[in-house]
């Protein structure tokens, strides 16, 4: 008997009885031919997602000019302009995620009940998700331009003209417009999962609307809120087209994706682009890990109060 048994073949000690055929023993553990059904999906994701990650990691240590394998990383962290893109990304992504959840949560909460026009409101809120940030940015260049509808409205109300686009604000607005629907869709699911009869029970026990919200709904919704916040943050962290189209890509909105784009598309320096993408992925995974850990420390049982 060796320790290097075939994967999936349980190492066995000398059996007192004639051994079951291998097929039976594997079937007992859920391994049989039907498992092949999953193979295409696993192969595709392996080849197009996992492998590219490893490939990107390996070429990031092979700079175009050769030499120091860490050159791409030292270049990135050594250049204050490039290094600052991390800070600029955070400065954009964190407020966007906070605002998105803060704006989407009350709306999603009220969407639990049916009311006339519910479908219409849902449809309009979902439009940005379907169109994507490129189209939103296209429309913003007109609506938020110095002589666009927004500024015309503001000046008619006596507010001085504002510069909304081609700066931090522009990217912030564009990202938020896509991020709110994203949070909204997730939170609708979370709030919808809270059993209505739990609220009813609280009401019959004398809990006012405010008490029901703070004592029952919120504790049950917090894990969902954290999840929504995390995914919004992760998504906004990778903001790309709107940083170029309505932002100030060389300065205020020089976010992490821009050096990736410049290295890959403009200089065809894929190793350098891959190195920055690796940095970004690591940061994303850290954000995910920390927030999910936080979520798991809170209550995350069922949101229904019994059977039914």
């Amino acid at each position: 008997m060796t320790l290097t048994a075939e994967p999936g073949t349980p190492a066995t000690t000398a059996p007192p009885r004639p051994p079951q055929p291998l097929r039976h023993r594997l079937a007992e553990r859920g391994v049989d031919w039907t498992l092949l059904l999953i193979l295409p999906a696993v192969l595709i994701i392996g080849a197009l997602f996992v492998y590219p990650f490893l490939y990107g990691l390996s070429i990031s240590f092979q700079p175009l000019e050769g030499g120091d394998p860490l050159a791409n990383y030292t270049d990135f962290f050594g250049d204050p302009y490039l290094r600052d893109s991390i800070w600029k990304t955070l400065r954009l992504a964190v407020p966007v995620a906070v605002l998105s959840v803060a704006a989407a949560a009350p709306l999603a909460f009220r969407m639990r009940r049916d009311f006339p026009g519910r479908r219409i409101v849902t449809l309009v809120v979902l439009l940005p998700l379907t169109f994507g940030s490129v189209l939103i940015a296209q429309g913003m260049t007109q609506v938020f331009s110095p002589t666009g509808w927004t500024n015309l409205l503001l000046t008619s109300l006596g507010v001085p003209q504002q510069q909304f686009i081609y700066n931090y604000t522009g990217t912030f607005i564009a990202t938020t417009l896509v991020s709110i629907p994203f949070a909204f869709v997730m939170l609708m699911g979370f709030f919808g999962g809270i059993d209505r009869s739990i609220e009813d029970a609280a009401a019959t026990l004398g809990a006012s609307r405010a008490a029901r919200f703070w004592r029952i709904i919120m504790p049950l919704a917090v894990p969902g809120l954290i999840t929504a916040f995390t995914l919004c943050l992760v998504e906004a962290f990778a903001v790309f087209p709107s940083a170029i189209l309505v932002g100030q890509p060389d300065n205020a909105t020089h976010v992490l994706t821009l050096p990736i784009y410049q290295a890959a598309s403009q200089r065809s320096d894929y190793p350098a682009a891959a190195a920055i993408a690796v940095v970004m992925t690591v940061l994303e995974l850290v954000i995910l890990g920390v927030l999910m850990l936080l979520r798991n420390r809170l209550y995350r049982g069922p949101a229904t109060g019994g059977k039914g």
Partner: peptide, 16 residues
Amino acid sequence: DKRGFGMVFQSYALFP
């Protein structure tokens, strides 16, 4: 919440 009845629900509706 102002009626003061006790109520038992079919699905129990306990606060999980």
